[in-house]
Simulated scan of single mutants.
Amino acid sequence: MSDAYLLVLVRVARRLSLGVCAVSALSIRSLSDLTPTEFENLTLDLVVRLGLKNAVWRTPGRDGGRDIQGDSFVSDFSGFVSRSSWYVECKRYADTVSWPNVWEKISYADSNSADVLLVVTTSTLSPQAIDEVNRWNNAHKNPSVRFWNRQDVEARLGLHLDIKVKYGLSHTPIQDAALSMIELSKVLLKYSNSITACVEFSGVLERRLDVVQTLSELISARLAEIEQYGRISVIPFRPNYDAPDWLKQVEAVQGKGFDRYAFRCIAALIHCHSSSSEVIIADASANKLTLQAGPVVEELLPDLKTIAFWGGLNIASDSNSIIIESQYAAN
């Protein structure tokens, strides 16, 4: 076990021992305290965790909000798998969501060939909206309409402590953070343990050390933020200070809302599994960029997604690159 991993364990234990005292100084948030963008990000994390596949942001709507689209796959007893396209609309409202608001989103979802519209709100639908939605669904019109009110969202969040911790919604954030980061710690332990084998079998030691170092930094930074603020922060990547020598065209990251710690860790992991000496940043847009370093190892994606979650990033891939999207870049 590496010194870096032991250091992380010590910090976790220390924060747990101080948790009861520290939590009293934290400001515990509710769903209403989230900004519209934070609520959209939380909704994306939640629907992906619950099984929505190929989830992507749609173009911002007239209200400036981002909408989510993805696919749901259901297998029946015969083994046939059916696919439905879902359109998710996020409404951070204090008042109820009216039927005209829902109807507007039904029209937009239908124009985008969605099979199901899911309205997710911090309040609830108005009585008229609920009646109209029931009439719509009973008439078997397309798209079908589903909705989560505040209680529905909170109930689902109760099963996913890491999402609550990420957005500052946990009443015991320090204790919950230790449980929430188990998967991230497993990734660190895997690469820590691989260092010995790397030395014995003449592997690429330096690249594995980069992974261990950046993972340790990520975990330590997130634990410190949760201890101080009750939620994670996003610390912008600084190309002139945070980029290793093997990461090229780093100026493309400037101002795109990419978290310093998670982005460095993702780049190090890709470099570790690449036969190339460099990782190149390409095809950058407002809140996306592509990392290229040769063929993508599919087995790497679960670890990349685990890391990305703790940096407000989304991960996708094709055969030769990893596509990274920042949840916190400007809409």
Rank of each mutant, 00 (worst) to 15 (best):
S2Y: 14
V8T: 04
V12W: 05
L18C: 11
L18I: 12
L18W: 10
V23A: 04
A25S: 08
L31V: 04
T35Y: 03
T37S: 12
E38W: 08
N41F: 11
L50E: 09
K53M: 09
R58S: 10
T59C: 11
D67C: 09
G70Y: 01
F73E: 11
D76C: 02
F77H: 10
F80H: 11
V81Q: 00
S82Y: 09
S85V: 13
V88I: 09
A94H: 12
W99D: 00
E104W: 14
E104Y: 10
S111M: 08
S111H: 11
A114D: 03
V120L: 02
T122W: 00
L125Y: 02
P127L: 06
A129S: 02
N137E: 02
N138L: 15
N138M: 14
A139I: 09
N142E: 15
V145R: 00
F147C: 01
R150P: 00
Q151A: 15
D152V: 06
D152Q: 14
G158T: 13
K166I: 09
P173C: 06
V187R: 01
S192N: 06
C198V: 15
E200W: 11
F201Q: 12
V204C: 10
V204K: 07
E206S: 14
L209I: 11
L218W: 05
A221D: 09
I226S: 01
I226P: 01
Y229G: 02
G230L: 01
R231D: 10
I235V: 14
I235S: 12
R238A: 10
A243N: 04
P244R: 07
L247E: 01
A252D: 08
G255N: 09
K256V: 02
Y261T: 05
A267H: 03
I270E: 04
S274H: 01
S276L: 10
E278D: 13
V279F: 07
A282E: 12
A284D: 07
A286I: 14
L289T: 03
L289P: 00
L291M: 04
Q292N: 13
A293Y: 02
P295S: 13
V297C: 11
V297K: 12
S317F: 09
S321D: 05
I322G: 00
N331K: 13
